[in-house]
Nucleic acid binder design. Structure first.
Lengths: 223, 223
DNA sequence: TAAATAGTGTCTATCAGACAATATCGT
DNA sequence: ACGATATTGTCTGATAGACACTATTTA
């Protein structure tokens, strides 16, 4: 086995979205060894001449493999060691991000990498230590939502509190069986006057019922 | 300027302790360029053949430079980029830890690196981006204490709740002027029956007053 | 007016801070 | 008993969940 003097450095990204039923994560199928054919978090090897920092590496991975630009990336932590990649001592920094699912569909054709959305809690076997990485990103996202950070990056530009509540419920559901139901009243009180949300004046949801106030993310919102 | 193909990888550690008056951080004075003579967080360059992972690098830094073994290291996050080290593109992972001050004194003489304890909120100018790293570690520690994680690694083996309260107050004090005083009753209720603490039976603090119950960290305690 | 959903009001359990009251030691 | 600190009790305000009630739309 070849031993390199310097280790592999990469950035991996857990990109989350919401399907009809559950929290989803985007995975790519590895086209080359090691772990050829296995599904993995999208990622890229650091190119020092190209990337100003590791977040730029992560953004390049999403851009070049999937044609995706995300509004923000949250760094979670570094995974490192001699054993995690069979090729060499390696270090990978995990990032995670949120994006409405259709925004990925829209731009994806540009590169012919095979990618797919999986249930974030049951993605099957993953390459390297990506199952552990995904687990950590999942937990971090859920903690955020539990501690009342609204996942606005998963919403369309304008949305109702009901829609936001439904998204939060899907995020918090860890298996298809248990139905998480947040309280409507508490949810409304929590977010209706939150500085993260701005009511869009004169813009109400239509339908055969009382129309709901629409909101958008405020300019000061940081997830 | 020389451009290497592979970047520098290192681990830096913010090691905190408590003095008579304030939260302190251990810094070492750089003996070589860049930033020769400036104070910096102790750290080490990754040696892939020696370190099983980056936490091992951090532990090696503490051990070889200061003769210190810490009970645990908390990884905070990675700092990376082309500009943060004048030599090259670099990546450093920040860890932080707690240790009673005298435990460092005891073993320090083994290597003749110059090190010193500084007020964690006013350490003066630091090398590289270590001021930012220290700021982040400080904030993380304070958030932990505010959210009721007892900083037991700063305590002696046995301690009273009063001693623990005093340590928490010192940690939370961000400048020498404001006097932080936690409520005695609330503090007692919070920790007296915490699963993190175990009352040491038949062991009471002595003195010309009602003796206080002594506690130790429970075996399940993880900071 | 019925159906459906939006938004509000109210009750209650919990929790934490403030602070008073009581307990237990050495002297 | 006194001084000093430990421990417990009580009050109060903030908060969130549970759940019922009112409001507003279309059909």
């Amino acid at each position: 086995m070849i031993k390199h003097l310097y280790p592999l450095i990469s950035a991996d990204v857990a990109l989350f979205s919401i399907s009809d039923t559950s929290l989803q994560v985007l995975l790519v199928q590895r086209a080359t060894p090691p772990h050829k054919g296995l599904w993995a978090l999208p990622g890229a090897i650091l190119k020092p001449d190209e990337d100003v920092d590791l977040e730029a590496t992560a953004r390049r991975a999403l851009r070049s493999k999937l044609g995706v630009e995300v509004p923000y990336l949250k760094q979670e932590r570094a995974f490192s060691g001699a054993e995690r990649d069979p090729r060499d001592w390696s270090l990978s920094v995990l990032y995670w991000a949120l994006l409405p699912r259709h925004q990925v569909h829209a731009v994806a054709g540009s590169r012919v990498k095979k990618f797919e959305w999986f249930n974030a809690d049951a993605p099957g076997a993953l390459a390297f230590d990506h199952a552990e990485q995904l687990g950590l990103a999942r937990s971090a996202l859920r903690e955020r939502v539990k501690s009342h950070s609204p996942p606005l990056h998963l919403m369309e530009e304008k949305f109702t509190l009901r829609q936001l509540k439904t998204v939060c419920e899907k995020i918090l559901r860890t298996n298809p069986d248990d139905e998480i139901v947040l309280d409507k009243g508490a949810f409304h009180r929590r977010f209706a006057k939150s500085p993260d949300l701005v009511a869009v004046l004169g813009d109400k949801e239509e339908g055969p019922r009382r129309p709901a106030q629409r909101y958008r993310a405020s300019s000061t919102f940081r997830f």
